[in-house]
């Protein structure tokens, strides 16, 4: 069963085509990676799906329902949660309260929202920092809170935007494990943008590659890693020629 289907998506910004005719789909309970050099249009694609940008052309279906152009809060209520590259928060909320906000997505009952938050805090091992503010935490913990509050909205499709950026190698290993565990525990579908290959190649069943706003490849991590186009995109024309001999 396809959970997400994107057809011929086009998004332009004042003449620059950020996403050009992108088509792909994601199966339920899959972990799919989205990679590509900087400026390839990965985050734009996320923003189109989650409703932060309105696509100029194309359709997005979620569980068979046309959600093209829906505002972000509605896509979230429908079952899509996303994290942000930079965890920004100027607020005065504690970690626990931030996660409760996510919990309030599905209920107006404070005790249920709290129960949800407590469960996720335990799973994420955030008990020690739950009363601190987001800005007081180290990057790795901030990323965990970002995951936790989005998870609290009980999504079916979980979209992660560079959760490993800025982490140390050992933290990346922990994050990798965490994502796999999240997928198992809640039976989620995960769509992940990542620059850290160690992580994305390690956990994805399938990888989609964007370059210059165009989908240039799709396949298993192994297939993609040996794809000429992909190597060219990442390492430049010359390297590909050298490799060829």
């Amino acid at each position: 069963m396809k959970i997400l289907q994107v057809n011929n998506l086009v998004k332009r910004f004042e003449g620059v085509v950020a996403n050009n005719n992108i088509t792909f789909s994601i199966e339920e309970n899959e972990i799919v990676g989205l990679i590509g050099p900087n400026g390839a249009g990965k985050t734009t694609l996320f923003n189109c799906i989650a409703g932060y940008h309105k696509p100029d052309k194309g359709k997005i279906f979620f569980n068979g329902k046309d959600i093209t152009g829906w505002p972000p809060y509605q896509t979230n209520v429908e079952g899509i949660a996303r994290t942000f590259q930079v965890i920004e928060s100027g607020g005065d909320m504690s970690v626990k309260e931030e996660i409760m906000v996510g919990g309030f997505c599905r209920t107006s009952n404070r005790y249920l929202a709290m129960k949800e938050a407590v469960e996720i805090i335990e799973f994420m091992k955030l008990q020690d920092v739950q009363d601190m503010k987001l800005t007081e935490l180290p990057v790795a913990q901030q990323k965990r809170v970002g995951l936790a509050r989005a998870l609290a909205t009980k999504p079916q499709l979980f979209m992660l935007d560079e959760v490993a950026a800025g982490l140390t190698p050992s933290e990346i290993e922990e994050m990798k494990e965490l994502i796999v565990n999240i997928q198992k525990k809640w039976n989620l579908t995960i769509f992940i943008i990542e620059h850290v290959m160690q992580l994305v190649m390690g956990i994805s069943a399938r990888v989609i590659v964007l370059d210059g706003g165009v989908k240039i490849a799709e396949g298993t991590p192994d297939e993609v890693a040996h794809n000429e186009e992909v190597i060219k995109a990442y390492l430049g024309e010359r390297y590909a020629k050298v490799r060829k001999g």
């Binding site: 989650a50 920004e88 607020g91 929202a113």
Partner: peptide, 23 residues
């Protein structure tokens, strides 16, 4: 209340708030 929490999230960051299902 739910609205109380949601407003504080809105104050902190509107994009994040929207990603948590808040209109």
């Amino acid at each position: 209340s739910r609205l109380g929490y949601q407003l504080r999230a809105v104050k902190a960051n509107e994009d994040v708030a929207a990603s948590l299902g808040i209109n």
